Simulated scan of single mutants.
Amino acid sequence: MRTIYKTDNGILSQMESFEPDVWVNLISPTMDELTEVAEYYDIDIADVRAALDEEESSRVQMEDGYTLILVDIPFEEIRNEQKAYTTIPLGILLVQSAIITVCSDDTVILNYFYNNRMRGFSTKKKMRFVYQILLRTTNLYQALLRVIDKKRSEIEKRVGSETTEDRDLINLHELESNLVYFATSLSANKVVLERLTRYERIKQYPEDKELLDDVIVENRQAIEMTNIYRDIIHGARELVSTIINNRLNNVMKFLTSITLVMAIPTIISGLYGMNVSGKWMPLSDTPHGFLIICGLTGAVCLSALLILKRRKML
Rank of each mutant, 00 (worst) to 15 (best):
T242W: 02
S269R: 04
S284M: 10
T286S: 12
T242C: 01
I258W: 08
D231H: 09
N246G: 02
I292P: 00
T266R: 06
G289V: 01
K279N: 13
I267D: 04
N250V: 11
M281Y: 00
L291W: 14
I268E: 01
L260F: 15
S269M: 10
N246A: 09
P287Y: 07
T242N: 15
L255M: 15
S284V: 03
G273R: 07
N250W: 02
M225S: 10
S241W: 01
G235W: 08
G235P: 08
L283E: 04
G289T: 06
C294Y: 02
V251C: 05
I268L: 10
L296W: 06
N227G: 11
T256A: 15
L283S: 05
F290R: 07
M252I: 14
G270W: 10
T226S: 15
I292S: 10
G270M: 09
T266M: 10
I233P: 02
I244G: 00
I264W: 00
R247Q: 12
S241H: 00
C294H: 01
E224D: 14
M262D: 03
M281F: 06
N249H: 14
F254R: 05
G295L: 12
I264A: 03
V261R: 04
V240F: 03
R230I: 02
T266D: 10
V261H: 04
T259S: 15
I233Q: 02
I243Y: 14
G278K: 11
H234G: 13
I264V: 09
V240H: 01
D231W: 06
M281D: 03
V240P: 02
S269Q: 07
I292Y: 14
V240S: 03
Y229S: 08
W280T: 11
T259E: 01
Y229I: 12
I293M: 13
C294F: 03
L255Y: 14
I267W: 06
N275W: 06
T259N: 08
F254I: 14
T242H: 09
I233F: 07
Y229Q: 08
N227S: 12
E224V: 07
T256I: 12
P282I: 03
I267G: 05
I232L: 14
G273I: 11
D231S: 13
S277W: 07
V261E: 07
M281Q: 11
L291G: 09
S257T: 10
P282D: 09
